[in-house]
Computed example of a mutant assay.
Amino acid sequence: MDIGLQIPDFTWPNGASMLGPELAAVARTADEAGFGYLAVMDHFFQISVVGPTENDMLEAYTTLGFLAAHSERAKLLTVISGVHYREPGLLAKAVTTLDVLSGGRAMLGIGAGWNEEESRGLGFPFPPLAERFERLEETVRYMLQMWSADDGPFAGKHYQADRLLNVPQALSRPHPPIMIGGGGERKTLRLVAQYAQACNLFNTPDLEHKLDVLRQHCDTVGRDYDEITKTVYQPLDPGANGEKTQQLIDELGRLHGLGVQVAIGSVPDVQQLDRLQRIGTDVIPVAAAF
Protein backbone atom coordinates (compact mmCIF):
# COMPACT_ATOMS: atom_id res chain seq x y z
CA MET A 1 0.00 0.00 0.00
CA ASP A 2 1.25 3.44 -0.91
CA ILE A 3 0.86 6.63 1.16
CA GLY A 4 0.31 10.14 -0.17
CA LEU A 5 0.43 13.54 1.49
CA GLN A 6 -2.25 16.11 0.76
CA ILE A 7 -1.69 19.65 2.05
CA PRO A 8 -5.08 21.35 2.51
CA ASP A 9 -4.16 24.31 4.71
CA PHE A 10 -1.58 27.06 4.30
CA THR A 11 -2.38 29.18 7.35
CA TRP A 12 0.84 28.34 9.15
CA PRO A 13 2.18 30.02 12.31
CA ASN A 14 5.01 31.90 10.60
CA GLY A 15 2.76 33.53 8.02
CA ALA A 16 2.85 33.94 4.26
CA SER A 17 6.40 35.28 4.17
CA MET A 18 7.70 31.89 5.32
CA LEU A 19 5.39 29.69 3.25
CA GLY A 20 7.95 29.27 0.47
CA PRO A 21 10.84 27.86 2.51
CA GLU A 22 8.55 25.92 4.86
CA LEU A 23 6.61 24.32 2.00
CA ALA A 24 9.88 23.43 0.28
CA ALA A 25 10.99 21.67 3.47
CA VAL A 26 7.69 19.77 3.66
CA ALA A 27 8.09 18.59 0.06
CA ARG A 28 11.68 17.46 0.57
CA THR A 29 10.89 15.72 3.84
CA ALA A 30 7.83 13.89 2.50
CA ASP A 31 9.69 12.83 -0.64
CA GLU A 32 12.65 11.52 1.33
CA ALA A 33 10.33 9.80 3.83
CA GLY A 34 8.80 7.72 1.05
CA PHE A 35 5.43 9.37 0.43
CA GLY A 36 4.40 8.29 -3.05
CA TYR A 37 2.17 11.28 -3.77
CA LEU A 38 2.23 15.01 -3.04
CA ALA A 39 -1.16 16.63 -3.46
CA VAL A 40 -2.97 19.89 -2.83
CA MET A 41 -6.63 20.82 -2.91
CA ASP A 42 -7.83 22.81 -5.89
CA HIS A 43 -9.67 25.62 -4.14
CA PHE A 44 -9.35 29.39 -4.05
CA PHE A 45 -11.13 29.92 -0.72
CA GLN A 46 -10.55 27.64 2.26
CA ILE A 47 -13.31 25.07 2.74
CA SER A 48 -15.28 24.88 5.96
CA VAL A 49 -14.18 21.38 7.01
CA VAL A 50 -10.58 22.64 7.11
CA GLY A 51 -10.91 26.20 8.41
CA PRO A 52 -12.45 29.65 7.97
CA THR A 53 -13.10 30.83 4.43
CA GLU A 54 -10.58 33.66 4.90
CA ASN A 55 -7.65 31.35 5.69
CA ASP A 56 -4.69 31.29 3.31
CA MET A 57 -5.13 29.29 0.09
CA LEU A 58 -2.62 28.90 -2.73
CA GLU A 59 -3.45 28.28 -6.39
CA ALA A 60 -3.05 24.59 -7.02
CA TYR A 61 -0.99 24.21 -10.18
CA THR A 62 1.47 26.98 -9.30
CA THR A 63 1.96 25.19 -5.98
CA LEU A 64 2.43 21.80 -7.63
CA GLY A 65 5.14 23.29 -9.84
CA PHE A 66 6.86 24.54 -6.70
CA LEU A 67 6.53 21.13 -5.05
CA ALA A 68 7.98 19.51 -8.16
CA ALA A 69 11.11 21.64 -7.84
CA HIS A 70 11.64 20.46 -4.25
CA SER A 71 10.99 16.75 -4.73
CA GLU A 72 12.33 13.95 -6.89
CA ARG A 73 10.10 10.89 -6.70
CA ALA A 74 6.54 11.58 -5.58
CA LYS A 75 3.63 11.84 -8.02
CA LEU A 76 2.08 15.33 -8.12
CA LEU A 77 -1.65 16.01 -8.32
CA THR A 78 -4.68 17.87 -7.10
CA VAL A 79 -7.25 16.11 -4.95
CA ILE A 80 -9.40 17.19 -6.75
CA SER A 81 -9.72 19.89 -9.48
CA GLY A 82 -13.25 21.11 -10.14
CA VAL A 83 -13.95 20.82 -13.86
CA HIS A 84 -15.43 24.32 -14.03
CA TYR A 85 -12.30 26.11 -12.77
CA ARG A 86 -10.30 25.99 -16.01
CA GLU A 87 -10.99 25.56 -19.68
CA PRO A 88 -9.80 22.08 -20.73
CA GLY A 89 -7.06 23.41 -23.01
CA LEU A 90 -5.54 25.39 -20.15
CA LEU A 91 -5.85 22.45 -17.77
CA ALA A 92 -4.21 20.12 -20.27
CA LYS A 93 -1.31 22.53 -20.75
CA ALA A 94 -0.90 22.94 -16.98
CA VAL A 95 -0.77 19.21 -16.30
CA THR A 96 1.46 18.59 -19.32
CA THR A 97 3.85 21.32 -18.19
CA LEU A 98 3.93 19.86 -14.70
CA ASP A 99 4.64 16.42 -16.15
CA VAL A 100 7.49 17.64 -18.37
CA LEU A 101 9.19 19.75 -15.72
CA SER A 102 8.85 17.10 -13.01
CA GLY A 103 10.27 14.30 -15.15
CA GLY A 104 6.97 12.51 -15.70
CA ARG A 105 5.42 12.73 -12.23
CA ALA A 106 2.12 14.53 -12.94
CA MET A 107 -1.37 13.16 -12.52
CA LEU A 108 -4.69 14.74 -13.42
CA GLY A 109 -7.04 14.77 -10.45
CA ILE A 110 -10.48 15.94 -11.58
CA GLY A 111 -14.12 15.87 -10.56
CA ALA A 112 -17.42 17.65 -11.05
CA GLY A 113 -16.62 20.30 -8.42
CA TRP A 114 -18.88 21.64 -5.71
CA ASN A 115 -17.86 24.83 -3.91
CA GLU A 116 -20.37 27.39 -5.16
CA GLU A 117 -19.24 30.03 -2.62
CA GLU A 118 -15.77 30.49 -4.11
CA SER A 119 -17.06 30.31 -7.67
CA ARG A 120 -19.61 33.05 -7.04
CA GLY A 121 -17.09 35.00 -5.00
CA LEU A 122 -14.45 35.11 -7.73
CA GLY A 123 -16.77 35.12 -10.69
CA PHE A 124 -16.21 31.59 -11.99
CA PRO A 125 -19.17 30.05 -13.79
CA PHE A 126 -20.95 27.50 -11.63
CA PRO A 127 -23.16 25.42 -13.93
CA PRO A 128 -25.82 23.08 -12.56
CA LEU A 129 -24.59 19.67 -11.43
CA ALA A 130 -25.85 17.81 -14.49
CA GLU A 131 -23.97 20.21 -16.76
CA ARG A 132 -20.81 19.92 -14.68
CA PHE A 133 -20.90 16.16 -15.21
CA GLU A 134 -21.31 16.70 -18.95
CA ARG A 135 -18.34 19.03 -18.87
CA LEU A 136 -16.35 16.51 -16.83
CA GLU A 137 -16.72 13.79 -19.45
CA GLU A 138 -16.01 16.22 -22.29
CA THR A 139 -12.94 17.57 -20.52
CA VAL A 140 -11.51 14.08 -20.04
CA ARG A 141 -12.09 13.27 -23.72
CA TYR A 142 -10.57 16.61 -24.73
CA MET A 143 -7.47 16.03 -22.61
CA LEU A 144 -7.03 12.47 -23.86
CA GLN A 145 -7.02 13.85 -27.40
CA MET A 146 -4.47 16.50 -26.44
CA TRP A 147 -2.28 13.71 -25.04
CA SER A 148 -2.53 11.74 -28.29
CA ALA A 149 -1.13 12.15 -31.79
CA ASP A 150 -4.42 13.69 -32.94
CA ASP A 151 -4.03 17.48 -33.00
CA GLY A 152 -7.22 17.99 -34.94
CA PRO A 153 -10.33 19.89 -33.86
CA PHE A 154 -12.61 19.05 -30.97
CA ALA A 155 -16.37 19.46 -31.15
CA GLY A 156 -18.41 18.86 -28.01
CA LYS A 157 -21.58 20.22 -26.51
CA HIS A 158 -19.72 22.60 -24.18
CA TYR A 159 -16.22 22.85 -25.67
CA GLN A 160 -15.12 23.51 -29.23
CA ALA A 161 -11.55 23.95 -30.42
CA ASP A 162 -9.86 24.23 -33.81
CA ARG A 163 -6.59 22.44 -33.11
CA LEU A 164 -5.56 20.50 -30.01
CA LEU A 165 -1.85 21.08 -30.45
CA ASN A 166 0.16 20.10 -27.37
CA VAL A 167 3.93 20.48 -27.61
CA PRO A 168 5.96 19.40 -25.84
CA GLN A 169 3.93 16.33 -25.11
CA ALA A 170 3.74 14.83 -21.63
CA LEU A 171 6.55 12.48 -20.66
CA SER A 172 4.20 10.02 -18.93
CA ARG A 173 3.09 7.22 -21.24
CA PRO A 174 0.56 6.84 -22.62
CA HIS A 175 -0.39 10.03 -20.74
CA PRO A 176 -0.46 11.40 -17.19
CA PRO A 177 -2.72 9.11 -15.14
CA ILE A 178 -6.25 10.38 -14.68
CA MET A 179 -7.82 10.24 -11.22
CA ILE A 180 -11.54 10.99 -11.06
CA GLY A 181 -12.62 11.90 -7.56
CA GLY A 182 -16.00 11.30 -5.97
CA GLY A 183 -18.30 8.46 -5.06
CA GLY A 184 -21.42 9.18 -7.11
CA GLU A 185 -22.69 5.77 -8.11
CA ARG A 186 -24.51 6.56 -11.35
CA LYS A 187 -22.16 9.06 -12.99
CA THR A 188 -18.82 9.50 -11.21
CA LEU A 189 -17.95 5.83 -10.81
CA ARG A 190 -19.15 5.13 -14.35
CA LEU A 191 -16.70 7.75 -15.62
CA VAL A 192 -13.94 6.16 -13.55
CA ALA A 193 -14.64 2.80 -15.16
CA GLN A 194 -14.74 4.29 -18.63
CA TYR A 195 -11.79 6.70 -18.55
CA ALA A 196 -9.68 6.80 -15.39
CA GLN A 197 -6.57 5.10 -14.12
CA ALA A 198 -7.47 5.88 -10.49
CA CYS A 199 -10.46 6.72 -8.34
CA ASN A 200 -10.51 8.71 -5.10
CA LEU A 201 -13.10 7.90 -2.48
CA PHE A 202 -13.69 8.91 1.12
CA ASN A 203 -13.17 6.48 3.98
CA THR A 204 -16.84 6.16 4.87
CA PRO A 205 -18.94 3.21 6.06
CA ASP A 206 -20.17 2.61 2.50
CA LEU A 207 -16.66 2.42 0.99
CA GLU A 208 -16.89 -1.31 0.30
CA HIS A 209 -20.21 -0.76 -1.45
CA LYS A 210 -18.73 2.04 -3.58
CA LEU A 211 -15.95 -0.30 -4.70
CA ASP A 212 -18.55 -2.94 -5.58
CA VAL A 213 -20.41 -0.36 -7.68
CA LEU A 214 -17.18 0.54 -9.46
CA ARG A 215 -16.61 -3.14 -10.20
CA GLN A 216 -20.12 -3.38 -11.68
CA HIS A 217 -19.47 -0.37 -13.92
CA CYS A 218 -16.20 -1.96 -15.05
CA ASP A 219 -18.07 -5.13 -15.98
CA THR A 220 -20.62 -3.08 -17.92
CA VAL A 221 -18.05 -1.20 -20.02
CA GLY A 222 -15.66 -4.15 -20.37
CA ARG A 223 -12.91 -2.70 -18.20
CA ASP A 224 -10.59 -4.70 -15.96
CA TYR A 225 -11.40 -3.54 -12.42
CA ASP A 226 -7.86 -4.37 -11.33
CA GLU A 227 -6.43 -1.83 -13.79
CA ILE A 228 -7.83 1.02 -11.69
CA THR A 229 -5.83 2.24 -8.70
CA LYS A 230 -8.18 2.61 -5.74
CA THR A 231 -7.25 5.58 -3.57
CA VAL A 232 -8.99 6.77 -0.43
CA TYR A 233 -8.78 10.06 1.40
CA GLN A 234 -7.55 9.10 4.87
CA PRO A 235 -6.15 11.58 7.44
CA LEU A 236 -2.64 10.59 8.48
CA ASP A 237 -2.02 11.32 12.14
CA PRO A 238 0.49 9.21 14.09
CA GLY A 239 0.06 11.52 17.10
CA ALA A 240 2.39 14.19 18.38
CA ASN A 241 4.54 11.55 20.08
CA GLY A 242 3.66 8.53 17.99
CA GLU A 243 0.84 7.43 20.27
CA LYS A 244 -1.61 6.97 17.35
CA THR A 245 0.79 5.12 15.06
CA GLN A 246 -0.62 1.63 15.58
CA GLN A 247 -4.18 2.93 15.23
CA LEU A 248 -3.24 4.45 11.88
CA ILE A 249 -1.51 1.27 10.73
CA ASP A 250 -4.54 -0.81 11.71
CA GLU A 251 -6.84 1.45 9.70
CA LEU A 252 -4.56 1.33 6.68
CA GLY A 253 -4.54 -2.45 6.96
CA ARG A 254 -8.34 -2.52 7.03
CA LEU A 255 -8.49 -0.33 3.91
CA HIS A 256 -5.97 -2.56 2.18
CA GLY A 257 -8.20 -5.52 2.96
CA LEU A 258 -11.01 -3.83 1.03
CA GLY A 259 -8.77 -3.44 -1.99
CA VAL A 260 -7.53 0.11 -1.43
CA GLN A 261 -4.03 0.60 -2.81
CA VAL A 262 -3.27 4.21 -1.87
CA ALA A 263 -4.20 6.32 1.16
CA ILE A 264 -3.85 10.06 0.60
CA GLY A 265 -4.46 12.52 3.40
CA SER A 266 -3.35 15.44 5.49
CA VAL A 267 -0.89 15.38 8.38
CA PRO A 268 -1.49 17.73 11.36
CA ASP A 269 1.06 20.52 11.84
CA VAL A 270 2.78 19.32 8.70
CA GLN A 271 5.19 22.26 8.63
CA GLN A 272 6.83 20.97 11.82
CA LEU A 273 8.09 17.94 9.83
CA ASP A 274 8.37 15.51 12.75
CA ARG A 275 5.12 13.68 11.99
CA LEU A 276 6.13 13.31 8.35
CA GLN A 277 9.39 11.78 9.50
CA ARG A 278 7.59 9.48 11.92
CA ILE A 279 5.23 8.28 9.19
CA GLY A 280 8.24 7.65 6.98
CA THR A 281 9.95 5.60 9.66
CA ASP A 282 7.07 3.80 11.35
CA VAL A 283 4.13 3.66 8.94
CA ILE A 284 5.21 3.70 5.29
CA PRO A 285 7.43 0.56 5.51
CA VAL A 286 4.65 -1.36 7.27
CA ALA A 287 2.01 -0.26 4.74
CA ALA A 288 4.30 -1.16 1.84
CA ALA A 289 4.47 -4.73 3.15
CA PHE A 290 0.69 -5.28 3.25
Rank of each mutant, 00 (worst) to 15 (best):
E117A: 15
A24W: 01
G4D: 14
K93C: 00
V260I: 15
L91V: 07
F44T: 03
A68M: 03
F133V: 02
L248W: 11
H158F: 10
G4T: 14
P177W: 04
W147E: 00
K157L: 11
S102I: 14
R190C: 04
W114H: 12
S266P: 12
V100P: 00
H175Q: 05
L201G: 12
W147F: 05
R275A: 05
A25V: 08
L129H: 01
A196S: 01
R254K: 14
K244S: 10
T220Y: 04
A198P: 07
M146Q: 00
I7R: 05
T62W: 03
T245F: 14
L236A: 05
Q234R: 07
Q194N: 08
F44K: 00
S266N: 15
A25L: 09
M1Q: 09
E137F: 01
K210R: 15
E137W: 02
A94S: 15
S172P: 14
G181E: 07
G239K: 01
M18Q: 08
L76C: 12
R173W: 01
G82I: 13
M18I: 00
L201T: 12
T229F: 00
A30L: 08
S148G: 12
P8I: 11
I80Y: 05
M18H: 03
S81C: 12
A74M: 10
V221P: 10
S102C: 11
L19E: 03
I284R: 00
L122N: 09
M1P: 12
L207W: 06
P168A: 09
G259P: 13
F124V: 13
A68Y: 00
V100A: 02
A198F: 04
P52H: 05
A130P: 01
I3D: 12
E138H: 05
D269R: 14
G113Y: 09
F154L: 01
I284M: 04
A193M: 06
M41E: 10
L67M: 14
A27C: 15
Y233I: 14
Q277D: 04
G34C: 09
L136N: 07
I249Q: 06
T78A: 08
V267N: 08
E137N: 04
F66V: 09
G183W: 11
Y195S: 02
V40S: 01
N55M: 01
F290N: 08
